[in-house]
Design a protein around this nucleic acid. Structure first.
Lengths: 200, 200
DNA sequence: TGCATCAGTGCACGTTGTGCATCGGCCTGG
DNA sequence: CCAGGCCGATGCACAACGTGCACTGATGCA
């Protein structure tokens, strides 16, 4: 991020991302062309594809950043916490901070709910994050085997729980602004508690 | 499936599916065009798009059929079994039967592992099946609320466990033919047992 | 047998995504 | 300071994708 060139690059990338998100929210992702996004961001169509390989990836990148923030938070939880507890806390911290990015994150989730064609892309991001989270969990537990079952399962369960909690939350609080974090907290607590107890 | 016309339609669909899978395995999905698939299946390009909206959907449809078979099996498990136990049995039955389709199913999974661009489509199928499975679970438990937490979590956990078990299985037995069902059974048992016990 | 239906097909057209060459601002070593 | 390399943005060409529309011929039905 040091040089001016890199800053410019990040700026255009952010501009493209914002333009894509804004247009998709206004007209629906299906009715937006890359050409329109490029025009809105005031860049060439070719430049768009230098940053994202499709319009879906552009809008999803916001959600990807959110998931990445979660993993960062999880990594800095104290080693004394159990894995589920650390996950719970990481989710809360990630949601409470990032006021600006968090707003866009919620917007993106609402967009995905209204555009089913985006779901696969969201899941692809989640799968990638699932791998990363599994690695962090394995590291936290001092496991050497990278493909051990527990970290993989745990990561999958955690992200699935998060996804379902978010989904149910957005169901209950359709367009609430500012978002009701207390309701969301209850959803997360319930889901993770279920995981700790087991499904039997 | 009664009339000759419908049989013909299913036949061409199957031909297209097989051609797509075969070509994708041979050359990699990236290096295969719809035109080539159409030629291999001896149909017009336009006809291809009458059956599938993309080549990815064509190859993924094999995996989709497999997931559908699982849900069908789950639905016919006796009501006495617990949800995790019913899932375990349904997976076994689904894997043991369908010798012909099952072979293609495994082939498709191996293809997906070597072609990351297919992941979003696979996840799309899994998400759809997750919804369906959640409905079946809710019905099995006599729940009226369609968005209750337990069925959603349970379905997500089950499919994630299945996905991880398959993944670890394909890691351990790279190209084994015939597939080592006993190893797979151990993977599934381990994963579901973990879910029953809980992650704490 | 006559009529409605519908899968398969060809065609036109807008959109997507990429390789390639180029331009021009930025960075760095001398 | 400045000359040359670096690199992001751009235009262009082109292959591939995906869809709407109209048509044909086989199929199913009364």
């Amino acid at each position: 991020m040091q040089g001016r060139r890199e800053r410019k690059k990040l700026a255009t990338r952010a501009a493209v991302r914002d333009a894509a998100l804004s247009l998709a929210i206004r007209h629906g992702i299906e009715n937006v062309t890359v050409e329109q996004i490029a025009a809105e961001a005031d860049i060439a169509v070719r430049t768009f594809f230098n940053h994202f390989s499709s319009k879906e990836e552009a809008v999803i990148s916001v959600a990807a950043a959110g998931a990445e923030a979660l993993i960062t938070e999880f990594r800095r939880r104290p080693a004394g916490e159990s894995v589920p507890e650390a996950l719970r806390q990481a989710v809360f911290v990630a949601m409470e901070s990032h006021d600006e990015a968090g707003r866009d994150y919620v917007k993106t989730l609402q967009l995905i709910r209204r555009a089913p064609s985006l779901v696969p892309w969201q899941m692809a991001v989640l799968t990638a994050q699932e791998s990363a989270l599994a690695d962090v969990i394995a590291e936290r537990l001092g496991l050497t085997e990278p493909t051990a079952r527990y970290p993989l399962l745990c990561a999958a369960m955690a992200l699935a729980a998060l996804r379902i909690a978010l989904d149910r939350w957005l169901d209950q609080v359709p367009q609430h602004d500012p978002p009701r974090l207390d309701v969301f907290r209850a959803e997360i607590d319930g889901a993770i508690a279920q995981l700790e107890t087991g499904l039997a």
